[in-house]
Write a protein that binds this DNA or RNA. Structure first.
Length: 89
DNA sequence: ATCATGACTAATG
DNA sequence: CCATTAGCCATGA
């Protein structure tokens, strides 16, 4: 694990349940607003896809983006969490 | 040190 | 709306 990846994962963990953020947003959060490309790399290497909510990170064009376990699953997870959030609130 | 590679983005036609 | 282009940066070979 590199420091950069740690920062990225930390930020991603901070995304609320049922919410989505863009890669760029994450890049800004970690300090350098121009490293969104590297952010994608870090997520791609993510060792714990289910404990680190990397599925909450989507493309800025509101497309779902990619996922190491399949983007279809990513969409499902996002919908699922949205419903969970609705139930809770 | 250099080079290619992405789960990307924004601008343009 | 779709395709193309240039820009971007950490990482591994």
């Amino acid at each position: 694990m590199t420091d950069f990846e740690k920062k990225v994962l930390k930020v991603v963990c901070a995304i609320p349940l049922g919410e989505t953020r863009s890669y760029k947003w994450v890049a800004c959060k970690v300090g350098s607003p121009r490293s969104w490309r590297a952010v994608a790399n870090a997520l791609k290497k993510n060792p714990y896809p289910f404990f680190i909510p990397c599925h909450r990170v989507v493309k800025s064009s509101r497309d779902s983006g990619g996922y190491s376990l399949g983007k279809g699953l990513k969409k499902e997870l996002i919908n699922f969490e949205k419903r969970v959030r609705d139930v809770i609130q």
